[in-house]
Amino acid sequence: MKRRIQFHIPQAYAGLSLLEFLAQRFPYHDQTGWAERIAQHRLQVNHRPVEAACALARGDLVEYIASDIPEPRVNLDVTVIFEDADLFAINKPPNLPSHPGGRYFQHTLWARLKTHFGLAQPMLINRLDRETSGLTLVAKNEQAAKELRTEFSSRRVEKKYLALVEGVFPPRLAARGLLLPDPDSPVKKKVKFVSAEVAPPEHASRWAETVFQGLETVSGDVSKAWKSGPVSLIEALPTTGRLHQIRATLQTLGFPVVGDKLYGHDPAIFVRFCKDELTDEDRARLRMDRQALHAASLRIQHPRTRRMLELEAPLPADMAALLAAMRAARLNP
């Protein structure tokens, strides 16, 4: 598969040469590297090969055939939970992006479905974050995709997540409210949960509802670098499907997800993570190298037969290992 990156030139870059623009906007190659790729006709402006000195205007389309961008290592251990003529139910491993974006193209679930499962155009119905593991539905045809998306948008799908969270979680906790931009965070995409009884009309698209149930709490220090507290295994049953809903809600409630760099106790950890500057203390405090969130089960109507599908993905090995280590540390302090 060839990766093509397209970029429409905004006013801020108008007047620069193609070479100057590329070196400023995409610094993973220097000017010499970009000049070589322009000479190889791997870059086009408005669908035509051009010289490196070509002056760019606002609205120009720059296209790059980007097969040589190095991609980070990922976990490609994708397993199939269910398959028929209309859909796949995939158990996505942690540390695997669902869709291409940023540095990731070949190293994505979407690409894996094309190259190893023979899907010409995978249609992912529920997208999980890169670090989140668990059930992902993939439609094999347009009609199945339409039906499955309608089930999700109509809130007829029963979803259950498992998570490890910091602290002693109560037996049951229901959260209803809004997910609003977090003005105190330097991270633009971060949201915060604000409890509310009803959704104001202007914020209807930000309404979020989740029921949480505590399953088990374990204590036991497994690191000498950080004095850790108890961890709870919980179920999260969301009735809405907002971006970062479970993680943001749990942070506001005071039980951040173990390993969550963005919605954890220390917001500076995410900044250090982005700069590849995590300390040993940061890693010990996180406990895991990814957020401990797992899409464990789905109950959904089949798009063709209309029978109910009940799909389950077992607790992943890394989450189970942390629980086992803490239980052992509690018994052998």
Rank of each mutant, 00 (worst) to 15 (best):
R58L: 01
P100S: 02
A52N: 00
L128N: 01
L76K: 06
E83L: 08
T217M: 10
L109S: 10
A174V: 14
W226T: 08
L164I: 12
E312Q: 05
F117V: 03
S232F: 10
R327Y: 01
L243E: 04
K114L: 02
Q31N: 09
W110Y: 15
R149N: 14
R156L: 08
L135H: 00
K146I: 12
L286T: 04
L331H: 06
A52T: 00
L262C: 01
A85L: 11
R242N: 06
E235Y: 07
R290Y: 15
A321D: 15
A295V: 03
Q6I: 10
P256V: 03
A268W: 11
E312T: 13
R285C: 02
E20G: 01
R247I: 13
L22F: 14
K140A: 01
S297A: 15
M319F: 04
V165Q: 01
E151V: 02
K190S: 06
L43G: 06
A208C: 13
K224T: 09
F105T: 03
W34C: 08
S297G: 11
N95R: 08
K2F: 02
E142N: 06
G101L: 11
K140W: 04
A328F: 07
T240N: 13
E131I: 00
E277I: 02
P267E: 13
M1R: 09
Y13P: 05
D68M: 00
L286S: 08
A296I: 11
K275G: 09
T252W: 14
A139T: 05
R299L: 14
A175S: 13
